[in-house]
Design a protein around this nucleic acid. Structure first.
Lengths: 247, 247
DNA sequence: CGGGTAGTTGAACCAGTTCAAATCTGGTGG
DNA sequence: CCACCAGATTTGAACTGGTTCAACTACCCG
């Protein structure tokens, strides 16, 4: 772990989003107006460390401050399906709220800093108001829309393009080369995991990325991705409007 | 429409779930405890009538009192995908809440009675409290979990079995024959629509139903379905625990 | 009874999977 | 710094299950 972050390794330090320099990342736009959000900073998760396990009791939602988390399920046949990739600012754990326990598992893909939002909120917490529930409801809505779109598209290329495009748009660093803008981003997940998310085999994802590369749409070497910045409507494909990777 | 229901054809009659004889169907279990839910009864929808259209402004959620609604999207290539089938008690429209407008369309599959829950709620409505938001959040959570499972399984038979099983469990009428319990239910949707929901072609759904029938798991003729009541874990298949059809 | 839609069936096709093997990568220990 | 290992990625080739296309049949409605 070359660039381990020590500063926030405090275990379960109490916090409030209003005092957090990352607040704007977690609660953007119209959501920002709300009141206090009572969270606890958790110890940094190392790659591969679980955030929760299948069967565990649901007692909190989580916000990603830094890093990347994979939420996945293993069915009876041992087949893994990735339900969500969550990055900085994303909310995690909503799907377990109604059921009361986790059916899925969540692990860190890279070193990750997480804030814990106890749920249901303790009665003593004044912030347990309509504003918080409504913010969460909006997040849930966004995730529903996203899931609706994460269905296998007609063409694996369209799926992979959409996935990488969204990832780069959310996390990537802009690079101007001539008159074009490219986005550079290290992929936090393997080809296999991308396949498990999109519903294709590892090899299909691999070949798809190669096709996109030979089209000049992007450049990949290992986990390093450089992709053309999407200009409104995705060109060269009937790919629907950019699909949010997570929320 | 042989059995048209006239009694509630009042246009936009004000209502409150606490006074509704169907309350228990819409707000079950732990959700039932909450306070008033301000809804309006809408005029009965006839088969094929839209509840909302793509591009329309989002200004309400809907609860199904009676009937069946199909929520679907049409992508740029004209391919339709069914996102949700909603039946009595189900909540509709959540995926548009965050975005503020509808990307999907919703139409009645059969004659349907709907209650409209304005959103965001008018400030004057006292019920705009944390309890309502939390109920909706729980619904959203349930829908997320459901979507996670609605992914194409390994085997179309498992998908179709799960779909029909869930449908029959939720809507079907029990029939005892000898020592077995069967569920009878008229399918509100076509084979094509089932395919669009599960991610298979119409013909595949058809053949799959035929296979299940020759296995003795069910009996279908046209839209009439009779299926063995599931006994806890679905037998004869690695099908994951019953997947909720909708919420 | 007539027309039209929904459902069914068969056959050819083909995209994506599977299996196997080569190659590459990043990280480790000497 | 270099050799080496485990896992990740890539490639090729055969296979297969689901799609597609084209009839055909059954059912529902007027």
């Amino acid at each position: 772990m070359a660039h381990r972050i020590h500063a926030l390794r405090l275990a379960s330090a109490p916090a409030d989003c209003r005092n957090c320099f990352m607040e704007a990342r977690c609660w953007q736009g119209s959501e920002a107006a709300g009141g206090s959000v009572p969270v606890l900073r958790m110890p940094t998760l190392n790659p591969g460390e679980p955030l929760w396990r299948s069967g565990g009791e649901f007692n909190a939602l989580y916000l990603v401050r830094h890093g990347a988390i994979k939420v996945y399920e293993v069915d009876l046949g041992g087949v893994e399906r990735v339900l969500q990739f969550a990055f900085a600012g994303d909310l995690l754990g909503l799907e377990a709220l109604a059921l009361g326990h986790h059916e899925s598992m969540a692990v860190a893909l890279g070193e990750s800093m997480i804030c814990r939002l106890a749920w249901p909120p303790a009665a003593s917490v004044p912030a347990h108001d309509a504003a918080l529930s409504e913010r969460l409801l909006r997040r849930a809505s966004a995730q529903l829309r996203q899931r609706a779109r994460a269905t296998r598209l007609t063409d694996p290329d369209a799926s992979v393009r959409g996935f990488l495009q969204e990832l780069a748009a959310r996390l990537g660093r802009e690079e101007r080369v001539g008159d074009h803008v490219w986005l550079r981003q290290r992929l936090p997940m393997s080809r296999l995991e991308i396949g498990q998310y999109l519903g294709y085999a590892e090899e299909t994802v691999c070949r798809s990325m190669r096709r996109l590369q030979s089209n000049g749409e992007l450049e990949v070497s290992g986990r390093t991705l450089v992709i053309k910045k999407a200009t409104g409507v995705t060109p060269a494909a009937a790919a629907p409007a950019a699909r949010p990777l997570s929320a």
